[in-house]
Write a protein that binds this DNA or RNA. Structure first.
Lengths: 343, 343
DNA sequence: CTGAAAGCGCTAACAA
DNA sequence: TTGTTAGCGCTTTCAG
């Protein structure tokens, strides 16, 4: 049915070995035979069978990408970064999203380890890297994205959650706010934990005592931001500013404030984290910590594929910088609001 | 290095054929040997080599997904739908995004046809399906998503762009607006064309003459929406309503109106298409046509994998319904605005 | 410079 | 019920 190497060889009056050599540009082949083979290849529209080739070369040019069911705007941007960087190196990516629990992830790893992929990019903020390790063949290339990688045993790339949060809260304090509430992410979440730590550190620097009442639990959903804000409104000591561990929650909180006719930032200032597109469109525009998501993706591929560039062997960690994007919700003057970019 | 079927066979005192049978649940194997084999499999943490298996079964359980560089919120939701539906059928997906031109897509198809994938989901609003066909082996499973599929020769799923736009413009007219401007997408874009046709049809139904001056060109970016609105503001005959062929452009137009202190919907009503998450957060909230993106993804997988469910052979087209989501920007009372969902 | 032949890891007849 | 064997489509020694 499909045209194979044998047919090409026959029509070109050469052996399949020669056809293979021509196709791979390997060894020495006469210019003449090379042309003859290529002519037939074009004529028959022959396409080397990737599986057959992979079986012998042990190379599929496929990268596995394992993601949790993550905030969608984040997710797509990350994929874009990974895919572009991969294709630049003539790789393709197998994506698997929505892995919430450890068991599911491990099963995924198994499938991907079955020889289909040359390397793996794993983002699993909810579990420790240790659990994942067991099912991996030792020689497998692997890079973690925004995950716990205790011991620095693994290659990983991450964003600087801690400093992002630290700088943001520092900025809020600079505005004069002291009673700063926070709506946190889940405790089991890596990003959430780091962001909370940054918040604490900023308070500490300015010798502001933390008030546990102002530390609200959330889970990165818009809903939990809304609920969190409602809780805050019932507090006896009202905060003058609110820092949310991600933008979705900040938008939820903002919705609650709109409903209760609370003026932002007049009565309560607001800041988020992630700098998702929506942050620019809301009113007041949302001050947030910008995260280089696309670059996170490309960095992952680089770490995976561009080995031995003088890096220390085994256990590198690349941290990408974040930056505070000042808009209106934190109390910065409207002129500060930068031009809205396309989505 | 890696543990293979031979090692398992040796340790279990059986032939590799028996191991294979146990692993595939095929034919008859004694309960006893089955258990013995499985024990060794567990002990050695053996994992069948997917490539070796694929070479003989001609099945990779991989699906290729080819996407253009599409609006990101749309993109991620589509992937989510595809991935979930695929995993339900124990498939994985190879994603390739950002294919702008025909040539690039064709090269992608080549790679994917190399035996790596069992089927292909292609979304390429910019080119005709004909061009893609040539490089495909005839037996390949293929489904188009939101693309031209002239002649109905191919299986395809799409959203009902035409009726979505039609109903939206009809709704605007119901509000009493007659001078309705439109910011279109690119002419070469399938979705854009259909949406424009729906717009025209609605005008026709109500015997409203189209005014070419009010038909502005855009390209689905926020920027082009902004620019489009600026053009509109220079027109001698100002429209009373504006329909944008997608939400990004609507947001861009809204930004322009905010800058010029134009009250929405008071002075000009506004509506978009896609119902992206941001649509709920802007002020005023954006009336838009809801598109079931996730379902578009799952429908694609279903069409690809769930063959012979009594469908007509060759050339089916599934159309998913769209619906008008009424919010504030079209002039509907604020109470109409439905509750904001999580992103 | 080219061809013959030996596998890569697995499944699937065919025998036993 | 189980083992033997012949490939799947390709690359790659090793001869020639």
């Amino acid at each position: 049915m499909t045209v194979g190497i044998k047919e090409v060889a026959r029509k070109a009056n050469v052996s399949i070995a020669t056809v293979s050599r021509v196709l791979n540009g390997s060894a020495s082949v006469t210019q003449e035979t090379k042309e003859r083979v290529m002519a037939i290849v074009g004529e028959l529209n022959y396409m080397p069978h990737a599986i057959g080739r992979a079986l012998v070369t042990h190379k599929t040019n496929l990268l596995g990408v394992i993601l949790p069911d993550v905030h969608s705007e984040f997710f797509s941007e990350l994929i874009r970064g990974i895919d572009h960087a991969a294709r630049e190196r003539s790789y393709h990516i197998i994506v698997s999203s929505t892995h919430s629990n450890k068991k599911e992830i491990e099963s995924m790893l198994g499938v991907m380890q079955g020889g289909h992929v040359d390397g793996l990019i794993v983002m699993s903020p909810h579990i420790s890297a240790d659990g994942v390790l067991k099912r991996l063949s030792p020689r497998s290339k692997l890079v973690f994205v925004n995950s716990y990688t205790n011991g620095g045993k693994f290659v990983s790339v991450a964003i600087d959650n801690f400093n992002g949060a630290y700088r943001m809260v520092d900025h809020l304090i600079g505005h004069g706010y002291e009673k700063i509430a926070i709506i946190k992410g889940e405790e089991s979440n890596f990003d959430a934990q780091e962001r909370f730590n940054g918040y604490l550190q900023a308070l500490k620097k300015h010798r502001i005592r933390r008030i546990s009442e102002l530390e609200i639990n959330g889970n990165f959903t818009e809903e939990s931001g809304y609920d969190g804000m409602m809780k805050i409104l019932k507090l006896k000591t009202k905060p003058t500013a609110l820092f949310c561990a991600n933008d979705s929650m900040a938008l939820g909180a903002l919705r609650a404030m709109h409903e209760k006719d609370i003026i932002v930032p007049g009565e309560i200032a607001l800041a988020g984290f992630d700098d998702i597109p929506s942050a620019q469109y809301v009113l007041p525009s949302l001050t947030s910590v910008h995260v280089p998501i696309y670059e996170l993706g490309t960095a992952a591929v680089e770490s995976l594929l561009d080995e031995g560039k003088g890096d220390a062997p085994g256990g590198r960690k690349k941290i990408l910088n974040t930056s505070v994007v000042k808009r209106e919700s934190c109390g910065c003057p409207p002129g500060t609001r930068e031009r809205v970019k396309g989505i």
